[in-house]
Design a binder for these strands. Structure first.
Lengths: 197, 197
DNA sequence: TAATTTGACATACGGCGCGTATGTCTGATA
DNA sequence: TATCAGACATACGCGCCGTATGTCAAATTA
């Protein structure tokens, strides 16, 4: 039987996003050819421009998907922590680990900001940023964390985690530096506590 | 009188770097045309490829220049601070303020990492990173800061400062959020102290 | 100083990739 | 069943990068 119209369209969108995710991660955004990646998905550039407008639009869709995945994961990890403070630390560690994925680094952390602009302006709000900010707000309300600007705190924490991840990924043996990074992150974060550990 | 050979060459290099800096900051790396920016400098693409190899080489030269300027500035500011701890905070604040410059953001913080890779792999070592790391090492030696990995601490601090700058720049009224960012940064950094403030 | 060489830069060429305009064919609608 | 709409394919033009080749002034040597 013939498929519904919207059905195949959604399939094609998914195929294009998947191919783009692979191509962008593999060759980088600039070097990825639209002809190649659409062919990889069994389609042509016509489908691409019809669905996403232009190359940037495709990147935006890919970033949105990855960002949403990361947000969901961060949310889960935060929810399973013992208390809110540990949730914050766990989210940070999770973010560092997620950022170790080469796909995440290349697409979300490097090409994404360069092509689409600052992550906080993205529709998805920058995944981890959102989760971190909410956690910080809870901690401030409970008097555990100093009354700093939650947005500022979240941005700084995520920024620290992100750079930690880039550092680890660029290092010779990631296994040994990962714990150092997480320890340093914990130290840093503890600066927000009302009373020191 | 006829100019020396090396002299004019150095002049041309400077003119190209200056034009590139302007073009990259204005249009972004990808959208900047080599023909246009070389014409702006009164030269052609021939000079460019002879001096810098390719477009990436030109960006690297521009980044190196800006990075060196930033390092020198950070060094100066750190040196004029009362003590080492205040030097660290001052360097962080200085980094945030420098990163508010649109040219720095676009070229050093966005396109630079996307095109050239992680800043810590750059020949210039990532300006502020170097200065921050040295300051952290001094503070650890004096027992003021906990014995964390200096490299990790420097990366986290610089990452936090960088993201603070991106946040401020994207905000509606930078003037009001700048102090919030600096306050949050001080809190964060104090997490590294042996005894809390 | 005159001839020769070097090399910094200009010019010319080929190819690729993006974006748009136009065409086509299938699934929806009446 | 006939018409329409829209998702996707095809065709075209333009701009830009990188390289190969040419040129001319400055440096070198005798």
């Amino acid at each position: 039987m013939a498929k519904r119209r919207a059905e195949t369209m959604e399939e094609n969108r998914s195929k294009l996003i998947a191919a783009a995710r692979k191509a962008f991660a593999d060759k980088g955004y600039a070097a990825a050819s639209m002809d190649d990646l659409t062919a990889e998905a069994g389609l042509t550039r016509g489908a691409l421009y019809h669905n996403f407008g232009d190359k940037r639009g495709l990147l935006a869709a890919v970033v949105h998907q990855m960002d949403s995945d990361m947000a969901a994961r961060a949310q889960m990890i935060g929810a399973t922590a013992g208390n809110d403070w540990q949730a914050l630390l766990a989210e940070g560690a999770a973010y560092i680990e997620m950022a170790l994925d080469p796909e995440v680094q290349r697409i979300v952390l490097l090409d994404g900001p360069a092509v689409l602009g600052d992550p906080s302006q993205w529709p998805s709000q920058g995944s981890c940023l959102q989760a971190t900010r909410q956690t910080v707000e809870r901690l401030i309300a409970k008097g555990i964390v100093r009354p700093v600007d939650p947005e500022a705190a979240a941005r700084l924490l995520c920024g620290a985690a992100l750079n930690a991840a880039l550092w680890i990924a660029a290092s010779d043996n990631p296994k040994t530096v990962l714990p150092k990074a997480i320890e340093a992150f914990s130290c840093l974060a503890s600066g927000f506590l009302v009373k020191a550990v």
